[in-house]
Simulated assay, not measured.
Amino acid sequence: MTLHPEIAKVLGGLPPSDGAPIDPVRARAAEQAQVPPPEERLPLHAVEDTTATTPSGEVPVRIYTPAEADSYGLLVYFHGGAFFSGSLDTHDGIARSLARETGHKVVSVGYSLAPEAAYPTALQECYGVVRWAADNGESLGWDGGNLAVAGDSSGGNFAAAVTAMARDDGFDRISHQVLLYPSVDLDFDTDRYASLRDNAEGYGLETRALKPHNAFYIDSGADPADPLVSPIKREDLSGLPPALILTAEYDPLRDEGELYGRRLREAGVEAEVRRYGGATHGFLALFSWIPEYHAAFAEVSRFLGRG
């Protein structure tokens, strides 16, 4: 399938990546400037900012209640941003759509960012919030059923790693993992995956930008050979929760996400992999106004058992 024409229009006005070092403060400010005002966001029954008490400290969370009900399934969401950017605000739209379409109460995690927070601070915070959600199920209105984790891009990395941490800890309450165009291999050798070469330039996220974008995380102590940093390197994937992995046709990270799905299935884990044709990395954050891409949220709902 060719690149979606609406995406092509947007990409046509963007300069190519030069692989230059990134100023994280400036990048975060630029993202924040694009956040729509509250009155323009998808309305829900309730949206509340609070904090989760975890072994790693107090972690900001935003709780999205889709509609008034006696109880809800829970979905803990980790935003993307190459570990150094993104926030509760920049990914508010994804969290709202997940809540609306799935009917689950969504807990979006405002984890600490690299380089200010060294590895494994953010990962431990994400895992801590999942445990906090389970421990505080009554106050959250949890129905005791689904406790899913989800994340996009680097947030998908955290979602995959958190399921592994839970598996190793004997914490068996995570019911599903939803990985949206995930970054599951931080070894960016272009010989590893064809998509790193085929989608190297012209599609928004470019292969040459992967190293500088992820350098803040890696330089803070995250070793790409560690399975908690590159979840695809975990030798034993058995016993992990069922997975839904959504990839984008024109994404340098496409092949690693799809290989991770195959490896999960080989380990006996239920894993669905769906490639969105004509799409680029970040399509749910940037292009979910296009109906065929917004449909991904309904696919998550079906996977969680509601649709």
Rank of each mutant, 00 (worst) to 15 (best):
A67C: 11
V129F: 00
K211L: 12
T121M: 07
V162K: 02
N157F: 00
G221V: 01
D223C: 05
L304S: 09
D255G: 11
E48P: 07
Y127W: 13
A285H: 05
S108Y: 01
I174R: 06
P36Q: 07
G81V: 03
S71G: 11
A134C: 03
V47C: 08
V300G: 04
H213K: 14
H79T: 05
E266W: 12
I290G: 02
R234S: 12
L98S: 10
N146T: 15
R262A: 11
D255Q: 12
W142A: 00
E292C: 06
M1R: 15
V149Y: 04
V61L: 04
S288T: 08
L264S: 12
A99D: 07
R274D: 15
I174F: 06
A114R: 03
K211G: 05
V149E: 06
N214E: 02
M165Y: 08
P24C: 09
G307H: 10
L284V: 11
D89L: 14
G155A: 02
R302I: 04
Y119L: 04
T50H: 12
D23P: 06
R254H: 14
G202A: 13
L147D: 00
A222F: 01
V269P: 06
A161W: 00
T2M: 13
Q177V: 07
D70I: 05
H79N: 04
A161Y: 00
E116K: 14
A27R: 14
P36A: 05
A200I: 13
L74W: 08
F171Q: 02
L240D: 11
H294Q: 14
L228P: 01
E40V: 09
G156M: 05
R167A: 10
P242R: 15
R131I: 00
V109R: 02
D226E: 15
A295V: 14
I232S: 13
G307F: 02
A243M: 08
E40F: 10
L180D: 06
G86Y: 02
G155S: 01
A243V: 08
E201T: 15
E266S: 15
E101S: 14
F303H: 09
V229D: 04
G170A: 12
D168A: 15
A279I: 08
Y276P: 04
S139P: 01
G144W: 11
